[in-house]
Write a protein that binds this DNA or RNA. Sequence first.
RNA 1: CGCGGGGUAGAGGAGAGGUACCUCGGGAGGCUCAUAACCUCCAGACCCCGGUUCAAUUCCGGGCCCCGCAA
Length: 299
Amino acid sequence: MKRKNSKKQKMNNKINPTVAFFGSSQISVWVLEELEKEGILPSLVITNPDTRQGRKMILTETPVAQWAQQKSIATFKPASLRNEEIVATLKASGCDLFIVAAYGKMIPEEILNIPRFKTLNMHPSLLPKLRGASPIRSAILEDVHPTGVSIMILTKGLDEGPILAQEETQIEDSEWPIKGTVLDEILAHQGGKLLAKTIHTWVSGNMQPQEQNHEEATYSQKITKEMGEIDFSNDPYKNLLRIRAFDGWPGAFFFVERKGALVRIKILDALIQDGVLVPTKIIPEGKKEMLYEDFLRSQ
RNA sequence: CGCGGGGUAGAGGAGAGGUACCUCGGGAGGCUCAUAACCUCCAGACCCCGGUUCAAUUCCGGGCCCCGCAA
């Protein structure tokens, strides 16, 4: 009777380490939501500084900062982590574990090694594939299907740390190439869930990190605005991948001449019809979202 | 005050100080073996509040909303 109880207790009362979370984007927030569902709430949040953004250039907090504020969690917004004050603060926090998800900055080794359970990272790709800045969008752009999520221990190199867990993402062929914003959300939630599960096992000591196969590593490039310009003379499927990958940000676009001026046309979505890339929904500069056929009618 | 564009039928556009026009869509009818094609007809609109004016949807001022850039 007594034995049974203690066993049960071990199963249900998971060890809950104190955690500091590094993240900045909406993807980070989705991960935080999954962690919270599993009872992991950080006691400290590190995110990027506020930036001016939006049409009015309003000073805005990162989605993570907003989330943390709502939960009344202490938040730091350092411009750089190579800063003794921050390092001291993190050391003094006494956190057992650091978690990183879409933070947006490289974290110095000095910080990675502070907590006794080390620093874990949720990386939304099947490492060692698509290391680097844009694993989700590049999966679409480079037609890497299926993709997935990985949980790893952060080390000095860029996404080179040993892997604790990995999971493929189930996406129907018919849905591929999927839209970037959709894949963001799928991978963030899936990665968050896997991360939560992994943390519980990891801190209880029942996990063997697996070194990555560095030979097979590929890297995702940072996505820039210019990459979004669509040249209709290019391969239609590649253009479609680009439109879907850049969904939301930075967006795909082309220019048309109207009354002597170049007008930018943003492509929201497109499909391939009889081997030809046909936009479906667009936004001409200064106008609102409209069907491409409506746009053509008025040309 | 970061820069800029815009709000006209259900959709996309044109327009002008005094009958608001075009394309698509909707409805009715016609032609046709038949049709998403063609013909005829019909319904349906000027973002809001002030000002100027004999007259404002149009010019002026303010407001609300939408969007492109930028970040």
